[in-house]
Structures are given as C-alpha cells and as structure tokens.
C-alpha cells in the first residue's frame, strides 16, 4: 500500500497491463509516467526517479479485522478469478520474506527467521523496531518500539513496565497505548534481490 501524495500532488493510478521483472506496472493518470508496483519507483516518463512512500497496512482474517475494528467499512462486489485472488504466500512460505524501507535503505527479514520467534527486535533506519509475523495469516506487522523493550511472559508479549501488547495491531491490551506502525511488505526473496541487490538481510552475516 502506498500514499498517493507526492510533492503536494495527489496522483491516481491505472493499470498499464504490463509485466516487468514479474511486477506489474501502474501509470499515473496525470502524466502517464510508469511506476513499478512492487517498489513504488517511477521508471519511465515525466516523473521518472520519483518514489512513492509505503503506507502501513496488514492482512488479517475478516473475522479478526471486524473484531479489532468493529466500525470498519469493507469493499464488496464480485470476486476475481481463483488465480488472481489467491493468497500465494501460504503455498511456499520459505520463499518469502518481509521488507522494511525502500530506496537505498531496505532490509529483508526472511520467513525462516521470523517464524522461529513470536517477535523480533532490531534497529532499522536509526530506530528500534519490533516485528511480528502472524504465521497463520502470513502477515507481518512492524512498529517503532521507542524505548520499549519487549519480552515474552506466560505466552504474552509484555514490555519492561509489564504492559501487555498485541503485536498484530500494535495496541496495548488495555487499549490505552498504540505503537507507531511502520510499513512492512512481503516479497519473494529472489524477486526482491533482483530489485535491491544491495539490500540488507537479517541477521547480518558475520564478517569472515
């Protein structure tokens, strides 16, 4: 998910119908510039080089989402074909990873690493982050941790003050606190490497 606002202008995107490096191409209605759906980068046209900003979103079951957000609105209407509306991450999870950042600063957290722990604490872009993978939904969430440090106690995620947290939503169990969400995007690891040859992978490989 991206913000459509760039340099004080709001863009609307259409579908170019083109595949490039297994990523589909969007075009903006105003300038017909072509944008890569996977990276948010303008690659051809007047706005070439411009970058859309990722916006935090998440994938949940409809039941869980409604429970978390009882006043939600939802898109309804005809469904896509089985192929296009299929959630492919579940078929071969190990091929995927979740990525923070974009442009020159990106970091991949492979499924194999995320699935081992209930959450992961790391430094990214100069700040402390906490990342959680819902294995059943194959959906990751990331939040700025600030000064909070998380730990597991009696199967609950708590911080140093004993506050209980739900990392699927970034909200405290008492509903009084919320962490600042950070956009995190699922990628096929190999495809990501094709776009970001210099991107970091967690954990950093030890120096030889």
């Amino acid at each position: 998910m991206y913000s459509r606002k760039i340099k004080d202008e709001t863009l609307s995107f259409g579908h170019e119908g083109v595949l490039f490096k297994k990523s589909f191409i969007m075009y903006d209605k105003k300038t017909r510039t072509l944008w890569l759906h996977t990276t948010g980068r303008a690659i051809k046209g007047k706005r070439k080089g411009d970058q859309l900003t990722f916006f935090p979103s998440r994938v949940m079951t409809w039941a869980d989402w409604k429970k978390q957000y009882p006043k939600t609105k939802v898109l309804t209407g005809p469904k896509g074909s089985r192929f296009m509306g299929h959630f492919g991450l579940r078929d071969k999870p190990r091929a995927y990873g979740w990525v923070l950042g974009q442009g020159d600063t990106t970091k991949m957290y492979p499924y194999g690493v995320l699935q081992r722990a209930p959450f992961l604490q790391d430094q990214f872009g100069g700040r402390a982050v906490v990342i959680h993978l819902d294995k059943e939904m194959m959906s990751a969430t990331a939040f700025a941790a600030g000064k909070r440090r998380f730990m597991l106690k009696n199967k609950q995620v708590i911080d140093q003050d004993g506050l209980v947290w739900f990392l699927a939503t970034g909200r405290s169990a008492d509903g009084k606190h919320a962490l600042d969400p950070i956009a995190i995007t699922p990628w096929l690891q190999q495809r990501w490497r094709g776009f970001y040859p210099k991107g970091d992978v967690y954990p950093a490989k030890p120096l030889r």
Partner: peptide
C-alpha cells in the same frame, strides 16, 4: 478502518 478482501482485490 477500511478492509479490502483479497478475493475481490484479485
């Protein structure tokens, strides 16, 4: 809060 079913987004 807004939700977009993947089956419809497909």
């Amino acid at each position: 809060a807004q939700a977009f079913p993947i089956s419809i987004m497909g």
